[in-house]
Structures are given as structure tokens and as C-alpha cells.
Design a protein around this nucleic acid. Structure first.
Lengths: 167, 167
DNA sequence: TCAAACTTTCAAAAAATATTGAAAGTTTAA
DNA sequence: TTAAACTTTCAATATTTTTTGAAAGTTTGA
């Protein structure tokens, strides 16, 4: 496989993976492109490489910056803005875990908690609702801890130990 | 909060969570409904509760069964089919982890492997592509192991130990 | 201050995805 | 074998999401 093939294969794979995880194609592809680009890219560059419009590029870059995985960079003497991705994949994972926890897991945990705390009126259906949402609540909290502590942190010795232990 | 409110809050939360993870609303809601239902439900029951069409119900039930988290059940003397969800949330998580690994992670790992093994022609861009896809490959493999071994298996002592260790 | 060089916004259009419902298919019991 | 009781399929439709592109906004340097 030649460089250009490998590159486009990677970008398109990342793009379709993204949609599978609720991230839109353009956003995932921009991220992929920046991740493998040795130099920061301008908006023009990105638009050209991925054949997407200026508006689309602008909006998705903003989202990637909100996620904390893409940064603006300024080249001296250049008016326009350049963008780079977080290049350390450990740090990338940590950031994504943190944001998904904040945006999805924590609100879910809150609701599972509310729902599982309704008054037990003694009926089967109420008992089942309480039982299952309690179980989900506990599981979600465990997941939250694992995402933030195991994947996260600079430490990472836990992950290494784990992988060794379990491989 | 009363039972009915709690129930519909749970179902709608699960539904919107689903869409965030690339699972459609109806599928996630059917799953939620079955999860908290003490009795197996018929297609009629589901259609009525969730206000969705027969076709939609049929297709999404089939998908849930493909995922291995919903089962057909037959009541004696009844012609129609009834459905239940996997009720053990540990087992549910295990099954979901296994399926996501198989459908998403493993194909991705394969492609990352292919891409990261292109010939190094000495250019910066090739070096960067190889470096980053190698790093992602390693990370994806670690994630795969964790999903299948840590969340999965009946063992689960690892998870418990981990949570205790890290909480 | 102006205007060139950019970026952002957002209404409209396009694309992707989910849903419906009726026809076709299947199973069962008599 | 038939017909009632169900389930599945799938083309058409509806809904949601993404993308576009041009106008509005911003920043900078002269």
C-alpha cells in the first residue's frame, strides 16, 4: 500500500467509525487528517483535502476544539489560523473519556439515581423498575470510575498492569 | 416521582442515550421497556406502549435479538411470541462489549494494522502516519482486551478489585 | 479610518436515517 | 387443505442530521 492509499483509508475508516459513535463524518475526518499531519493545517488545507465546505469545516473545527482535542495555532507572519490535533494518543483517550463522562455518563447517572429512588409501592412492576435501574446505576458509576481513573490520569500504570495481567 | 413518570423518564432517557451511541431510538426504547418489564411482552404490547408501528417493532426486535440481548419466549397456549430482555446487567454489558468488539473494534484494528505497516519511505508525512496509526493500533488492542476480559467473563473479580483499588 | 483577509453564522438544500403500513410470508390447529 | 392469527419485508414517506454557500462579522495593518 502506498502512502496516499494508506492515508485515505485511514481517514475514511476514522470517518465511518465516528458515525458509529455519534460523531459526524466530517468531524471525525478532520480529526484523522490533523492527527497524521506533521504540520498544522489551515482551513483552506482541510477544505481542499476533504472536499468539504468552509462552513462545515469551521463548525466542526470548533466542535473538535470544544472537545479539547484540536488546537488553534498561529504561524508568525501568517494572518490565517492553523490547526493541530492532540498527538499523544494516551492524552487523546483521556480527553475523550473525560468529555464523554461529563456529557453523557454523568447526566445518565443522575437520572438513573432519580428513577431508582422512587417509592416502592410493593407492586412487581415498581420493584422491577427499581431493581434494574439500581443495577444500571451501579454499573454506570463503575464505568465512570474506570473511564476517568484507568484510562485517564498521567499514571496509566494501572492500565499497563491490567493488560499484562489479563493478556 | 410516581411509577409512570419514572418509567417514561427511564425509557426516554435510554432512547436518547442510544442515539448518542449510534443505536436508534426505537431499538433503545424497546430494550428499556423490556428491561424493566416483569413479564415478557408481545409485539402488540410494545407497539402500544411506545406508539410505534408493527414493522418498526419487528425490525428492531430482530436487531436486539441479533445483539443477543433480547430473547423470544413462548407462553403455553398462546399463539403469539413474547419477548424479554437479558435481565442481568453484568451479562448485558458483557454481551454488548463482545458485540461491539466484534463489529467495530476488530475491523478497526485490522485496518490500523494494515495502514501502520506501509513501507517507510523516509518522508515526514509517512513517518507521522505510521507513528500515529501504530499508537492507535496499540490503544485499540488494549481497549479490546479490556472490553472482552475485564467487563466480560463471568470472572469479574478483576473489575471488583479494580474499582476498589481506584475508588 | 478603511479595506483586505480572514472566520463565523445560519437559512436553505441535500443526504442519511428511521418509520410506516399494507402486502407477502409463515405457522398452527382443526 | 384451509383460513385465522400472527410476523416479516420493503417501497414510500417522514424525520433528523449534515452540508452548503453567501452574507455578516471580525481582525489587522497601513
Amino acid at each position: 500500500m502506498k502512502y496516499d492509499d494508506a492515508k485515505s483509508k485511514f481517514i475514511s475508516t476514522w470517518g465511518s467509525l465516528g458515525t458509529l459513535w455519534g460523531i459526524n463524518k466530517a468531524m471525525a475526518q478532520i480529526h484523522a487528517l490533523l492527527l497524521i499531519s506533521p504540520e498544522p493545517l489551515s482551513m483552506e488545507d482541510i477544505m481542499e483535502e476533504l472536499h468539504i465546505s468552509r462552513g462545515n469545516t469551521s463548525m466542526n473545527l470548533r466542535q473538535l476544539m470544544d472537545w479539547g482535542i484540536v488546537f488553534k495555532e498561529n504561524k508568525i507572519g501568517e494572518r490565517k489560523e492553523f490547526f493541530t490535533s492532540e498527538k499523544d494518543v494516551q492524552e487523546l483517550a483521556r480527553q475523550i473519556a473525560k468529555e464523554r463522562s461529563r456529557r453523557e455518563l454523568q447526566p445518565t447517572i443522575k437520572i438513573l439515581n432519580d428513577v431508582s429512588n422512587i417509592k416502592d409501592d410493593g407492586t412487581d412492576k415498581t420493584k422491577e423498575l427499581i431493581k434494574q435501574t439500581k443495577a444500571l446505576h451501579e454499573m454506570a458509576e463503575t464505568l465512570d470510575i474506570m473511564m476517568n481513573k484507568v484510562v485517564g490520569q498521567g499514571n496509566n500504570w494501572i492500565t499497563k498492569a491490567l493488560v499484562k495481567l489479563v493478556k
